[in-house]
């Protein structure tokens, strides 16, 4: 922290606020002269001193519904999915066919929250797709979209 600058600004602000309040000025002057310790201005009671900037992900209300997740990610395009979400070669035994289109945020939300199936899919497919998305990690296509949907 650049304490010196902060203190200087706080001092000036306090003196401005004090205006014609001579005793306050005099006390501050004496304090500054008598001590080299840093001054801590407490500020007004009742005023909020913390401003929180929410994660950008949690604010993307509109993009949550419009973002899309390719299943599987393009690097594994054409792969099929096991029930646990792992990507396997096409026609692997017990694997399900991936969706022909990326899944839409709104559809994913409804599948997660209401247990709906993705359009034109079986329950096994929907569950495998959800399992796949749960395994997504940062850097993989769709991860940010999925985190946003779950954060809502």
């Amino acid at each position: 922290m650049s304490e010196d600058r902060t203190d200087g600004a706080a001092d000036r602000a306090a003196q401005d606020a004090a205006g014609s309040d001579a005793p306050t000025d005099a006390v501050q002057g004496a304090g500054a002269g008598a001590s080299t310790r840093r001054m801590l201005m407490l500020g007004a009671a009742g005023a909020s001193m913390v401003v929180t900037i929410r994660p950008a992900l949690a604010q993307t209300a509109t993009s949550v519904l419009t973002c899309q997740i390719p299943v599987p990610q393009p690097r594994q395009s054409g792969g099929w999915l096991m029930a646990d979400g792992t990507v396997v070669p096409p026609y692997t035994r017990n694997a399900v066919r991936p969706p022909s289109q990326p899944l839409k945020g709104q559809e994913i939300r409804e599948a997660l929250l209401q247990g709906r199936l993705y359009p034109g899919t079986t329950r096994e497919q929907t569950q495998a797709y959800t399992a796949y998305m749960l395994r997504l990690q940062n850097g993989q296509s769709g991860f940010t979209c999925f985190v946003s949907i779950r954060a809502k």
């Binding site: 706080a10 801590l40 500020g43 001193m49 913390v50 929180t52 900037i53 994660p55 992900l57």
Partner: peptide, 14 residues
């Protein structure tokens, strides 16, 4: 832990 960023005015950082 929360992924949030906070702006703190004196004397909160202290």
């Amino acid at each position: 832990a929360s992924g949030a960023t906070h702006l703190l005015a004196s004397p909160v950082p202290e």
